[in-house]
Amino acid sequence: MSQSPDAWPLWEVFVRSKNGLAHKHSGSLHAPDAETALKSARDVYTRRSEGVSIWVIPSSAVVASSPDEREPLFAPSDDKPYRHPTFYDIPDEVGHM
């Protein structure tokens, strides 16, 4: 699925609050590159509070496990964080999926 030339990729945002123990998933945003993603994450998900740590990762790079405590029917077999195909880069040659 080819992206239009003005569609910024999706990034997942993880924030560890000032005295927090671990990064928590806060949500996602669109940015053209990592630096912008970090800045936007600061603006949107932390409102610029001090002392927070932010991780941003392209959504397409996240690898996710299947929820193991659930019954097989509820556990998809793929390793992507989202069940639906929007964020997978399918080369044009492969055609519409």
């Binding site: 239009s4 569609a7 999706l10 949500g27 996602s28 945003l29 669109h30 949107v44 964080p81 989202y82 069940r83 639906h84 195909p85 929007t86």
Partner: peptide, 19 residues
């Protein structure tokens, strides 16, 4: 604006793009 963004983010987990 920020709320819109959180919500677009939630919608995008369902396999649709912001675009």
């Amino acid at each position: 604006g920020g709320h819109g963004l959180y919500l677009y983010s939630a919608a995008e987990t369902l396999g649709i793009s912001r675009e």
